[in-house]
């Protein structure tokens, strides 16, 4: 996959960092504002996809990245499940119970486990969308060209 012109590259460099931060903002404020893990994760994936599109990449690099992102995806969703299962061992022993203190409404650190769930969902969705994009890019490189 070839890269694009210098203008596109420079703009992407400027924009993708901001997009990444915005994605993190959406994820971490999931329990306070609209959005949350899924929406923020999609934005995270968008920033990575933009970089790959603008700068291009060769097949080997793409494959390596795909391997990494698919491992991250599996680990994130596994961590999500572990968070749910941990509730079986803490307090009232109920699956998916919110076992952390709730805090005050409106604070960033509140609502117990929900922000943690949001973070892992964000990583999972970001990695999954990025993996899908990479799989399509690899397919294009391998088969169509």
């Amino acid at each position: 996959m070839k890269g694009m012109s210098i203008i596109v590259k420079k703009v992407t460099q400027l924009v993708s960092g901001l997009m990444f931060l915005y994605g993190i903002y959406i994820i971490t404020h999931g329990h306070l504002t609209p959005g949350g893990g899924f929406a923020g994760g999609a934005i995270l994936a968008g920033s990575f996809i933009l970089l790959v599109l603008a700068f291009g990449s060769d097949l080997l690099k793409l494959k390596k990245r795909e391997e990494g992102s698919s491992v991250v995806e599996s680990l994130a969703i596994f961590a999500f499940l572990i968070l749910g299962v941990m509730a079986l061992f803490i307090g009232t022993h109920v699956f998916f119970k919110n076992y952390l203190p709730a805090g005050t409404v409106g604070n960033l650190i509140s609502a117990g486990v929900i922000p943690l769930y949001n973070i892992f969902v964000g990583i999972e969705v970001g990695a999954a969308l990025f993996t899908i994009f990479l799989a399509l890019a690899i397919f294009k490189e391998e088969v169509l060209e």
């Binding site: 698919s70 599996s74 969703i77 596994f78 499940l81 699956f95």
Partner: peptide, 24 residues
């Protein structure tokens, strides 16, 4: 009654672990 949740937890956990550990 906790055993009931195992029917969902265990297959899902296995499915998520396989792509990581199965590589190694």
């Amino acid at each position: 009654s906790t055993l009931v949740t195992l029917f969902v937890i265990l297959p899902l956990a296995t499915a998520f672990l396989i792509p990581v550990i199965g590589r190694v």
